[in-house]
Simulated scan of single mutants.
Amino acid sequence: MAKVTLDRLRKVYPNGFVGVDDATFEIGDGELLVLVGPSGCGKSTLLRMIAGLETITSGQLGIGDRIVNDVAPKDRDIAMVFQSYALYPHMTVAENLGFGLKLRGAPKDEVARRVRESARMLELEPLLDRKPAALSGGQRQRVALGRALVRQPQVFLLDEPLSNLDAKLRASTRVEIARLHRTLGTTMIYVTHDQVEAMTLGQRIVVLDKGRIQQIDTPMALYNRPANLFVATFLGSPKMNLLQGVLAERGDGFSLRIADDNELPLHPEPDLRERVRAHLGKPLTVGLRPEDLSLAAPAPGHLQARVDTVEPVGNEAFLNLDCGGSELVVRLPPRDLPRPGDVVHLGHNPEHMHYFDPERGGSLRA
């Protein structure tokens, strides 16, 4: 096990494109850290820099007590699991698991022992004599994980390892990876574009966009206190509702004046009042999670919206609404739901509001 330290890591391609810009953070010894973001955000590039598969333009990368910028991938004591299984089709599961150790000259009894241990952890023991063609997609992915596991490296790197699996297998394999991490206590860096994977697996999450780090924190801290509009709308399914309007004073608080004469009362916490007040007479963006909106009786301060579609998904339902040109989603229990075309009134939880500068995108809480 080892910590991994990134100090102002930068990757610039020959055509001038900046793939990763000023990445600075530390992955603790034994931590499972997730790199998440949309396609092209730099997360896989960053992982490949840690693996030694991409050259580092500037900055320093440390694994354990070594600076490894110029260390060959095979000497970094890391193991990588790719999106594709990359199994040898002519080898059995046991031979695939032990192949890396054989290349490194490990004794036969050592190879056999580690293969057995990995197979037991991943429930592959009944499959050791099969070849990859006789395995399901989930079984092949477990073999790919096991091949990394037998190496017993200081750091595991996983590059979207579940993206080729169907939804049910993704969920079950995600549980296996979390269980493996708890069992092994090994440092793991996991790349995904799936925010559900990021939220359920990561002890901490690094959110990236356009090659730059947007925020680093625990899953629930990112969900409850996003640093900017990108993080607010990227994490969460459905994404955070955003209402845009002009800030005005209203009694002992403020209000957000939006289209169709809708007005949303705002009561920011004391430490936020002056930052919100600075936007009087100016545009302001307010965010509310779908679970922080609810159906309510008509009353001052309740938004009015028209139901566009209703999505019952079993244990809950989502109302898609048009509120003065703004699209809103409300998460509700699946009972007594309105119909498309109905006009509804919405209550909200003022304590769970998020305030953003619409010009710069930053949270006023930051």
Rank of each mutant, 00 (worst) to 15 (best):
P300T: 15
A305P: 00
E316Q: 11
N320E: 12
P300D: 14
L321P: 02
S294E: 09
L303I: 07
N320R: 06
L319V: 02
T309H: 11
G301N: 08
L319K: 00
D322P: 01
P300A: 15
A305T: 00
N315G: 10
A297K: 15
P300S: 15
V307W: 08
P312H: 07
P312G: 09
R306D: 05
V307I: 13
C323A: 05
T309P: 08
L319Y: 01
G314K: 02
E316S: 11
A299W: 10
E311P: 00
D322E: 01
E311W: 07
A305F: 00
L303K: 08
A297E: 15
V307L: 06
F318S: 01
Q304G: 12
Q304W: 05
Q304K: 14
R306F: 03
G301L: 10
V307T: 08
H302K: 13
L319S: 00
A317L: 07
T309S: 11
E316L: 08
H302W: 12
L295N: 13
A317W: 07
G301F: 08
A305G: 01
V310W: 09
A297R: 15
L321W: 03
L303P: 03
G314D: 03
G314F: 03
P298C: 11
T309E: 10
H302V: 14
S294R: 15
A317N: 06
L295D: 07
N320F: 13
S294M: 13
G314I: 05
A299C: 09
N315Y: 11
N320H: 15
D308P: 01
E311H: 03
E316V: 08
L303M: 06
E316T: 08
N320L: 10
S294A: 15
E311Y: 02
V313D: 06
C323N: 00
A299Q: 15
H302E: 11
V313N: 10
S294V: 12
G314T: 09
V313W: 07
L319W: 06
P300H: 15
L295W: 15
P298S: 11
C323E: 01
A317K: 03
C323V: 02
C323R: 00
G301T: 06
L319F: 11
V310M: 09
L321K: 01
L293W: 06
P298L: 10
L295Y: 14
R306Q: 10
T309M: 12
R306C: 08
A317V: 04
V313Y: 07
L321F: 03
E311C: 00
T309F: 12
D308M: 09
F318D: 00
Q304V: 12
L321N: 04
V310R: 02
A296Q: 12
Q304E: 09
P298Q: 12
A305Y: 01
P300I: 14
C323K: 03
C323S: 03
G314C: 03
F318Q: 01
P300F: 14
A317G: 08
A296W: 04
